[in-house]
Amino acid sequence: MTQAATGVAPEGDPPARGAVIAVVGPSGVGKDSLMDFARKRFSGLTDIHFVRRMITRPKDSIGEDHEPVTAETFETLARSGAFAVHWKAHGLGYGIPASVHDDLAAGHIVIVNGSRSALDAFRTAFPRLLVINVTAHPEVLAKRLSARGRETAADIEARLARATDPLPEDMHVVTIDNSGDLAVAGRRLVDIVEGLRSEV
């Protein structure tokens, strides 16, 4: 279950010149793989940042490379304003560090692994926001989830149902179909980032 997300914009600062790209999509759709593809393409550039989220799960757990924190530390950080956006889902806490505001003030591009349920909070924290909605055909997604062996058939069916939930209509959203060759979808993400970079 997802709890209400919180987004915090910096107070008293001029509007950020940079932009945030929030990559969202259901589990198993390949968000991490796409972001890794783009991360390698932009390696060495100082104006494109891939955010390492803080998550209340062990460092050696399966999934994205993250900064592990305890639940108690997460709550302390949230109260102290250490997060630009934070939310809870499926028993875990997720936080985007407030330091991203410094990157945005410098006119940089910040790419984050987001959450559909937290997009309103992202919009509050980051007025210049582009949402990349990663999708895959249901049969492809079901096969990937089943291959991981971490969920029951009922869990997978529930995930597939959530994957069709609509995104807010008033947000800037670009959809990438990652049903096939990763390189094709990866190049599409790279092109989007390069296009936005030319605008900021």
Results as ranks from 00 to 15, higher is better:
residue 70 T to G: 15
residue 194 E to D: 05
residue 187 R to E: 15
residue 50 F to S: 13
residue 163 A to R: 11
residue 113 N to M: 01
residue 34 L to P: 09
residue 74 F to Y: 15
residue 135 T to N: 08
residue 67 E to Q: 13
residue 117 S to M: 12
residue 199 E to C: 05
residue 105 A to N: 02
residue 20 V to Y: 05
residue 79 R to Q: 10
residue 176 I to F: 07
residue 24 V to H: 04
residue 183 A to S: 15
residue 38 A to W: 08
residue 113 N to A: 04
residue 41 R to S: 13
residue 32 D to A: 08
residue 106 A to L: 10
residue 155 D to Q: 09
residue 150 R to S: 02
residue 45 L to M: 08
residue 83 F to R: 06
residue 103 D to W: 12
residue 157 E to G: 00
residue 126 F to G: 06
residue 77 L to C: 11
residue 54 M to N: 14
residue 139 E to A: 05
residue 137 H to T: 01
residue 134 V to S: 02
residue 28 G to H: 05
residue 26 P to L: 13
residue 187 R to W: 15
residue 181 D to N: 14
residue 16 A to L: 00
residue 21 I to L: 12
residue 1 M to G: 14
residue 21 I to Y: 01
residue 192 I to S: 09
residue 59 K to H: 14
residue 120 D to Y: 01
residue 194 E to Y: 05
residue 57 R to A: 14
residue 122 F to V: 00
residue 161 A to D: 10
residue 84 A to C: 06
residue 42 F to C: 12
residue 170 D to C: 11
residue 105 A to Q: 09
residue 102 D to T: 04
residue 187 R to K: 14
residue 171 M to R: 12
residue 29 V to S: 02
residue 157 E to K: 01
residue 152 T to H: 09
residue 57 R to V: 14
residue 195 G to A: 04
residue 163 A to T: 10
residue 159 R to Q: 08
residue 178 N to H: 14
residue 136 A to Y: 05
residue 49 H to E: 12
residue 56 T to V: 15
residue 152 T to D: 11
residue 153 A to N: 10
residue 88 K to Q: 15
residue 199 E to D: 11
residue 95 G to K: 05
residue 63 G to K: 10
residue 141 L to H: 08
residue 162 R to D: 02
residue 76 T to V: 15
residue 117 S to G: 11
residue 185 A to Y: 05
residue 117 S to P: 07
residue 78 A to Q: 09
residue 89 A to K: 14
residue 112 V to S: 09
residue 175 T to G: 13
residue 123 R to S: 13
residue 186 G to F: 01
residue 180 G to R: 13
residue 97 P to A: 02
residue 135 T to C: 07
residue 101 H to K: 06
residue 62 I to N: 05
residue 63 G to Y: 07
residue 180 G to P: 13
residue 140 V to P: 03
residue 44 G to E: 03
residue 120 D to F: 00
residue 60 D to W: 15
residue 131 V to Q: 00
residue 8 V to T: 11
residue 115 S to D: 00
residue 129 L to A: 00
residue 152 T to C: 11
residue 78 A to S: 12
residue 97 P to D: 00
residue 163 A to E: 07
residue 149 G to A: 04
residue 44 G to T: 05
residue 42 F to G: 08
residue 37 F to T: 05
residue 174 V to D: 03
residue 91 G to P: 15
residue 93 G to F: 03
residue 21 I to C: 09
residue 25 G to V: 13
residue 145 L to H: 02
residue 10 P to C: 08
residue 97 P to Q: 01
